[in-house]
């Protein structure tokens, strides 16, 4: 495998704000590479620097051996890009958009085949304005694939979509990769990164805090369980933190998340008991207690000390 993207120490600041701080990583040909992190972590800035839409203040980027700014004209036809903030004219029809964008490239796929595959064939005469959020995203994917690119960028592809539409898109992305393309995507849904990506870079405040396969990231946590519950009124985490096997206790509003213990199924049973007993002894009123396997969200929580978002998506 060879690196299709190499990023060496890029930094980008907007005024006083450091959006991206000395990032280095590479993306291999044929993989689905994901960049996750909360809003403002620097994901879009990074992807737009790689796409050649923004210039990093420092550092070097190579995409297929080309400089995305200086060799933009050579690179453009080789890239497929879906932007987080992009739009088509309200009154343009689906087929017109594809037909027009197809005319901009020397080599394109048959857009009618693409429409068929993306399930938009019956929408070909519909104006952009009348498409649903999911259909719009399908159309943007079609536009990104139109020139049969080697490398596809998908920025926050499923933000704002309902779970059904999101799963449809995941299938699509898998298919894109099966055609031998490399996919670079950003998301703030940890679940999406976990399900879709071969490798994930976790970004927080402009820095990569971890980069590996989702399975490795979760394994490296050395945590077998997450217990979450709601508490009412006064509550102190001290009693729980001292319990054997508990690794981390986080409170966000009324919600408490307890992580632990080190891998081993037998210990795992005792931490639930321990937690419940400790709560009962302290006379704490709690509800909605559940235990789950740890996921990427817990990786983020453990590495950064804060949650991705105040509420989980489930």
């Amino acid at each position: 495998m060879s690196s299709i993207i190499t990023v060496g120490g890029i930094t980008k600041t907007y005024g006083e704000t450091i959006a991206v701080n000395d990032l280095s990583f590479s993306v291999e040909e044929g993989e689905i590479f994901g960049m996750v992190g909360p809003n403002g972590a620097g994901k879009t800035t990074t992807i737009e620097c790689i796409e050649g839409l923004r210039q990093a203040d420092r550092g070097e980027i190579q995409v297929m051996g080309l400089d995305p700014i200086r060799q933009e004209r050579q690179l453009r036809p080789l890239l497929g890009i879906q932007l987080q903030q992009a739009h088509l004219p309200d009154n343009i029809k689906v087929w017109e958009a594809l037909d027009m964008y197809a005319s901009f490239y020397d080599n394109t796929l048959d857009w009618e085949d693409l429409l068929e595959e993306l399930g938009l064939m019956d929408k070909r005469g519909t104006t952009f304005r009348k498409l649903s959020g999911g259909q719009k995203q399908h159309l943007f994917i079609a536009l990104a694939l139109l020139n049969d690119p080697r490398l596809v960028f998908l920025d926050e592809l499923t933000t704002g979509l309902d779970p059904h539409a999101r799963h449809n898109i995941w299938d699509l992305v898998q298919e894109v990769r099966q055609r031998g393309k490399t996919v670079f995507l950003t998301t703030h849904y940890m679940e999406e990164a976990e399900n879709l990506c071969d490798r994930v870079a976790i970004l927080d405040q402009g820095k990569i805090v971890a980069l590996d396969t989702p399975a490795n990231l979760i394994r490296d946590l050395k945590i077998s369980e997450r217990i979450s519950f709601q508490v009412k009124g006064e509550w102190k985490s001290g009693a729980l933190e001292d319990l054997p096997g508990v690794k981390n206790v986080q409170r966000q509003g009324d919600k408490v998340v307890v992580l632990g213990p080190a891998n081993g199924a037998q210990v795992s049973a005792s931490i639930v008991t321990g937690v419940v007993n400790a709560l009962a002894e302290a006379g704490t009123q709690f509800s909605d207690l559940r235990t789950e396997y740890p996921d990427l969200e817990d990786v983020f929580l453990t590495l950064t000390g804060h949650q991705m978002r105040p509420e989980r998506s489930e």
Binding site: E51, R76, P77, L83, Q85, A86, F104
Partner: peptide, 8 residues
Amino acid sequence: RRLRLSPL
């Protein structure tokens, strides 16, 4: 922005 991403 979208137009500018094309080779146009």
